[in-house]
């Protein structure tokens, strides 16, 4: 998992998160489970989820405070998906 500032755009904060899964199937399921709910429209943040190989990656933008909240809730939700897979998969 690597959080790093990236090239493009304004003074905003950018970060990305790489999450390894055992196989592309699990990564795809996690992607479909996590992507329908949008970020609060009040905004200051945009989130992109994608699968490349067996990795679910994510990166977001803007103010550090909002980034932290978004990353925290993303990790909570991710953990929920993983636990669900362990229990019911």
């Amino acid at each position: 998992m690597a959080a790093n500032g990236e090239e493009n755009s304004e003074p905003g904060k950018l970060g990305s998160l790489d999450v390894p899964f055992p196989s592309p199937r699990e990564a795809t399921i996690a992607l479909s489970s996590l992507s329908p709910d949008r970020e609060p429209r009040r905004g200051g943040i945009s989130k992109h989820l994608s699968v490349s190989g067996s990795t679910l990656s994510r990166w977001s933008a803007d103010e550090a405070r909002i980034l932290r909240v978004s990353v925290c809730s993303f990790l909570d939700h991710l953990q929920l998906v993983v636990e669900t897979m362990e229990k019911f998969g």
Partner: peptide, 16 residues
């Protein structure tokens, strides 16, 4: 709501 939705989506996919 979001908790149940995430579990339901995951289970739906796991079980087809």
């Amino acid at each position: 709501l979001v908790t149940v939705a995430i579990v339901a989506r995951t289970v739906a996919q796991l079980w087809g």
